[in-house]
Design a protein around this nucleic acid. Structure first.
Lengths: 144, 144
DNA sequence: ATAAATGCAAACGTTTTGCAGATCT
DNA sequence: AGATCTGCAAAACGTTTGCATTTAT
């Protein structure tokens, strides 16, 4: 929010620049439709821009996530995943291969209403991660 | 499952021993009611048994979690937390201090029924992590 | 006696950070 | 010009693992 004078009131976000690296990171996330990790993104970007560093990829994934241009999926016991943002949705994590998969389920707006006591914790959002086995790993297990 | 000869058929879990270290780790988790990390447990155990190593704490937290004697709470972007197991329940993670807190809400048995499509992913369980601010950090922010 | 468990140290995977230099605006 | 951004290397963080030794059974 800005004041009448145009000055920022607090926590002013610095202006951002358009660098090739940033563009390539965004392009990579958009091209990868399998919840890529930062390492996946790094690999794709490096194909076009071999000198990019991991730090730059991490930093850009961070600013893109803050801007809302990509969605960061924080996975318990695993690398963060990224997704080109559509709508809030849920994910499953395969206990065999560690892969992350979309779970199509309506956004649970009524969850908060079911909270009995949060002990002073102010709830601002939620994440649901399903535990299970992905199609490929299930098939592999079937084969023995 | 065992055969008539007493041999294990598959994936035999090895017999476990009762070591002081294991007992101390369990005792520590039971004494700490604030979702301790492995580091917290390590600190408590080391007070009584200074020579214990971090590796032993990790290994014992692992076997105790597998046995169901403690509950492991896997937190996105943070160290695992442990809890003396009561019932499946949910947690909030403070976006300010990173602390983990219980959220009292009935177990959502009907979640699965709301899944529209899991794209071949076999769901075996779920975890809900609320995002928000804990009471202490909220109070601190209020004070400015 | 034997297999499990320990302690140590080193390695691991992921992410962050300090800093000098390059680059966008 | 000036701040942002980059690349590099190092460090931070949480956790796992190899190995020789100890210990419970």
């Amino acid at each position: 929010m800005s004041t009448a004078t145009g000055k920022r009131t607090s926590a002013a976000a610095p202006p951002t620049r358009n660098t090739i690296q940033r563009a390539l990171v965004l392009e990579a996330v958009r091209s990868l439709h399998n919840h890529p990790t930062s390492a996946d993104v790094y690999d794709v970007v490096r194909a076009k821009h071999p000198n990019i560093s991991r730090a730059t990829v991490y930093r850009n994934l961070g600013v893109l996530a803050n801007r809302g241009e990509v969605l960061r999926v924080e996975v318990p016991n695993g690398a963060d995943r990224y997704d080109f943002f559509n709508e809030p949705h849920y994910h499953g994590k395969c206990r065999v291969c560690g892969g992350v998969f979309d779970i199509d389920m309506p956004y649970q707006e009524n969850l908060l209403a079911q909270v009995v006591d949060s002990y002073g914790f102010t709830i601002e959002g939620h994440e649901i991660i399903f535990d299970g086995v992905c199609a490929d790993c299930r098939a592999a297990a079937q084969r023995g």
